[in-house]
């Protein structure tokens, strides 16, 4: 479904990704782990079209997409949830979903139902300014917003970073509910969660893929992976 070959990405002269290659089959969830500064966020931003690669190819459903804009990639079913948990804070939760529904040309009621079914407690916050939500609630709203329309491929950057254990559980539940319905590339440092959800694991180290783990039994055994965090 998504295949990246020899991707090189730089900020000005500082090259951050070096010959990164990866593959995600339809319905798979690929997880990326790696230290701060390894280039995980840069990789997701490049896939979604916010950054242009210097070199290399990104093919999605057989088409080269490395020259497409985020707007065009949205139409093809890609959705990006950024690391900063940046909701539209001056708009209400409902309006955040309304914008997503408008973009996807989906009826608002249907979009609201979709997001609320992920996390029913959100219903009582619909009129709250999204900027006042807790970190966990924002993250759930962002994932919900990304699910409006007909998403085929999710790119999610560190969804559980800085969240309380109980909310991490909620987010894992949401992600596992999405399994087989969509494909995804998820950056995540929580190895226990990677363990349970991943179909593939990539370890990114200093902008290079240090390891690619495809074998299920190998994924289940996270011993030795801590050294990459």
């Amino acid at each position: 479904m998504l295949e990246i070959k020899d991707l090189n990405v730089a900020y000005g002269h500082a090259r951050v990704l070096h010959d990164v290659s990866l593959k995600v089959e339809t319905g798979q969830m690929a997880f990326f782990i790696g230290r701060n500064g390894a280039g995980k966020t840069t990789l997701l931003k490049t896939i979604i079209g916010l950054l242009k690669p210097q070199k290399g190819s990104i093919t999605y459903q057989g088409d080269e997409i490395s020259n497409l804009s985020p707007e065009e990639l949205y139409q093809r079913g890609l959705r990006y949830v950024a690391q900063e948990k940046k909701v539209f804070g001056n708009l209400t939760v409902r309006e955040n979903i309304e914008i997503a529904a408008f973009a996807a040309q989906e009826p608002l009621g249907q979009a609201l139902d979709k997001v609320i079914s992920l996390y029913p407690k959100l219903e009582s916050f619909l009129k709250t300014k999204a900027g006042q939500l807790s970190g966990g609630q924002r993250q759930i709203l962002l994932v919900g917003r990304a699910l409006v329309g007909d998403p085929k491929f999710l790119l999610i950057d560190e969804p559980t970073q800085g969240l309380a254990a109980i909310v991490i559980g909620e987010i894992e539940k949401i992600l596992s509910g999405l399994k087989d319905r969509v494909s995804a590339v998820i950056v995540e440092q929580n190895l226990a969660m990677v363990n349970r959800l991943a179909d593939r694991v990539y370890i990114l180290k200093e902008g290079k893929v240090a390891r690619e783990i495809i074998d299920k039994s190998e994924i289940a055994d996270t011993r030795g992976l801590e050294e990459y965090l």
């Binding site: 979604i48 916010l50 804009s69 985020p70 707007e71 949205y74 139409q75 959705r79 990006y80 950024a82 940046k86 539209f88 804070g89 001056n90 708009l91 309006e95 955040n96 309304e98 914008i99 997503a100 408008f102 973009a103 996807a104 917003r145 329309g149």
Partner: peptide, 17 residues
């Protein structure tokens, strides 16, 4: 509303297509 959202997070709006 889209303008208000863009004032805050232009990339977020673009990534919603």
């Amino acid at each position: 509303k889209i303008v208000v959202a863009s004032l805050e997070d232009k990339e977020g709006v673009r990534c919603l297509g």
